[in-house]
Each structure stands twice: as C-alpha cells, then as structure tokens.
C-alpha cells in the first residue's frame, strides 16, 4: 500500500462517503444543487461547526469539553442580561466573549493544574453553566438587539457568505495550520498520545492544556453570541444538546477519543458529511429524528467497521499489529483509526 494511502486512509474513506452522500442528495432532490442551499446548509448549523473546530484541538489533546453548549448559553445570557439591563451593546458583546474565555479558563484550571479528568470537570460545567444561563435570563426570551447585530447573524456579509460562515472558513484553515504546522500543534498530539512522555520531552503540559481549554470556552462563547444574533433572541435553553452533535462531528472526522491522532482535513470532511446528510434528508422530507438517527448509525459504523475489519485481518495473518505511532509524524495517525492502538494491544496479548 502506498504511503499516501496509508497516511490519509481515513480521510479518503470520508471523502468516499461524502461523494456518496452528495450523489444521493442530487438524485433525491432537484433542489439540492444550488448555491443558496449550500449556504443554508452551513448557516443552519454554523455555531456547531465553529465549535467543532476547537473541539478537535481539545480531543487531540486527550481531553473532552462537554460544557461547550452550556458555555454558549451562558455567554449569550450574559449578553442578553446586560442588554436588558441597559448596558451599551458593545460592552455586552465584549463581556459575553470574555465570559466564554473565563468559563474555559476556570475549567482548564481544574484539568491542567489540579489534574482532574476533563470528563468530570466539563460535565460539572455542562450542568453549572446551563444553570447560570437559566438564572440570568430566567423563564423568558430576551431579544430586541440592535438591528446591525441581528443582520450580522442573519444576512450575507461578503457576497453570499454570512459573518459566521466567513469566520468558520477562515477559522478551520487557520486551525489546520496551527494543528499541523506549528510546534504548538505538534505538542498537542504528543500530550494526547502520552502526557508523561510529553512532560519528559520538555513540553509544558499544564500550560498547553490550559490554553486549549480556555480557547474552547472562548470559541463556545463566540458561538453563543453568533447564535443570539442569528435567532435574534436568547433563551436559557439555547443550544441545549449541541455538545453531542459537535463531538460526533469530531469523532467521525477520525480524531481518536483517546487523544493523540486525527487531522483537521478529516474533521472538515466529517462536518460536510453530517451537514449534507441533514440537508439532503430534510429536503427529501425526512423527519428530524430520522436525520439524527442516520447520523448516529454512521458514527457507530465509523467506529465499528474499521475496528472489526482490522481485527479480522490481523487474526487471519497472525501479524504483530501496526507499528507504534512514530513520534513526529502526527498526520500518520490520521489514518490510524480510533481505538486501534488499544485493540491492537489486546490482540497482541491474545
């Protein structure tokens, strides 16, 4: 097998699935192929895909952030509450963004400095920040934002692209460069792969984790503000349940839930797949619950099938399993499927 195929195996698979989805959508609905529909497809989930980009960093780093949707709501609620209290709108937006970053920093402190598992810390965050959001806006919906703010969330800014969509497009490219082309990005993989090794190789593990968790909070806060602009109002239940959709996009993208592997290209492809399944099925008039179900099954298959196939292959060949991940070649592991390492260790023991 050629080197490029080994390195980009998962991304090629995703590209294949994506092409399949696109062909199906075209055959299902005569309305699918249209510039505006492509824009709508992104626009309807823009907050989720923006957060998915930063979530890829968190998971590559070997952590998880379950609190993103609650932080979105909390930031948006700060915005709404300040606006309702008569604060200048610019100040309210600034405070909302800062709120997201502080929420991330706060959780990052417990994860990075106290060494608590991010699963527990951000689960607490999921509950706590949601509660805080509900306290701030109580049982109401707060709207009546300035006209320009609603326009920013709803109307095209450049050509047919909205502000959120531009932000996402620029963001995912910048994120890809940081993740794959900078020492900081590489250190995330090393930490995610084995934080002890990272520590001994002179990486400041705690500081890196703190930066990643804080960024996650900040981006979630930003997404919350964007959501408020798109809907034109804020409720305490804003974005409820989004964290699962976001994590699904990242995992389907080939980022290992155990950390240390995955590529931004994979996450981008996975975002396209999830959005297009929803859009295509929606245009073909399938219920929203069916759309969610199909995406769920795809996620299960994406984890199961590669694992089963590789296990089956190894048993037949009685081979020693794949070589351990090579240190600096982070993208190598992009093709290395989730959980494979653990599976292969088991297989070798057998």
């Amino acid at each position: 097998m050629p080197e490029w195929a080994r390195r980009w195996g998962w991304e090629l698979l995703l590209a294949g699935i994506l092409i399949g989805v696109l062909i199906l959508n075209v055959s299902l609905s005569p309305f699918y192929l249209g510039v505006q529909n492509v824009i709508n497809t992104f626009q309807l989930s823009i907050e989720k895909v923006i957060v998915a980009v930063i979530m890829a960093f968190v998971i590559v780093n070997g952590e998880i952030d379950l609190s993103v949707a609650s932080v979105m709501a909390f930031s948006a609620s700060v915005l709404a509450a300040l606006h309702a209290a008569g604060a200048p709108f610019g100040l309210a937006v600034g405070a909302a963004l800062l709120t997201g970053a502080i929420a991330g920093l706060f959780q990052g402190f417990f994860v990075a400095r106290m060494g608590l598992p991010s699963l527990t810390v951000t689960l607490a965050g999921l509950i706590g920040f949601r509660g805080a959001a509900r306290i701030l806006v109580e049982d109401q919906s707060i709207g009546d934002f300035p006209e320009w703010f609603d326009r920013l969330g709803q109307d095209p800014l450049v050509g047919r692209l909205s502000f959120g969509l531009l932000l996402f497009l620029v963001g995912i490219v910048v994120a890809g460069i940081i993740l794959h082309r900078t020492p900081f990005g590489r250190s995330l993989y090393v930490i995610g792969d084995n934080s002890e090794v990272a520590r001994f190789s002179g990486i400041n593990v705690a500081r890196t984790k703190l930066i990643v968790m804080t960024s996650s909070g900040f981006v979630a806060g930003l997404a919350g503000v964007l959501f408020a602009a798109r809907l034109g109002s804020v409720r305490g239940d804003l974005g409820q349940g989004f964290e699962l959709d976001i994590i699904t996009m990242v995992l389907l993208g080939g980022v290992s839930i155990f950390g240390g592997s995955g590529t931004m290209v994979g996450v981008g492809l996975s975002i396209l797949i999830v959005l297009n399944i929803r859009n295509g099925l929606g245009l073909a008039r399938f219920a929203i619950t069916t759309q969610t179900g199909v995406i769920g099954v795809l996620l299960i298959l994406s984890v199961l099938v590669p694992n089963l196939v590789s296990r089956f292959a190894r048993r037949r060949h009685r081979g020693p399993g794949p070589a351990p991940p090579s240190g600096g070649r982070t993208t190598d592991q992009g093709g290395d499927l989730r959980g494979r390492e653990h599976e292969s260790q088991q297989a070798t023991v057998e």
Partner: peptide
C-alpha cells in the same frame, strides 16, 4: 487490506443512506 476496508465502509455508508432515502421526493 486497507483498500478493502475503505471500500466496505463506503458501501456500508451508501447503503445506509440509500435505504433511508427510498421515499420519493
């Protein structure tokens, strides 16, 4: 083997979506 695996997953993914979309637009 990897090629097979890729193919298999693509087919599985397609079959899944196709089955779900059998209804007429």
């Amino acid at each position: 083997m990897k090629k097979h695996r890729t193919l298999l997953a693509v087919v599985a993914g397609l079959a899944l979506v196709m089955a779900a979309c059998a209804e007429e637009q």
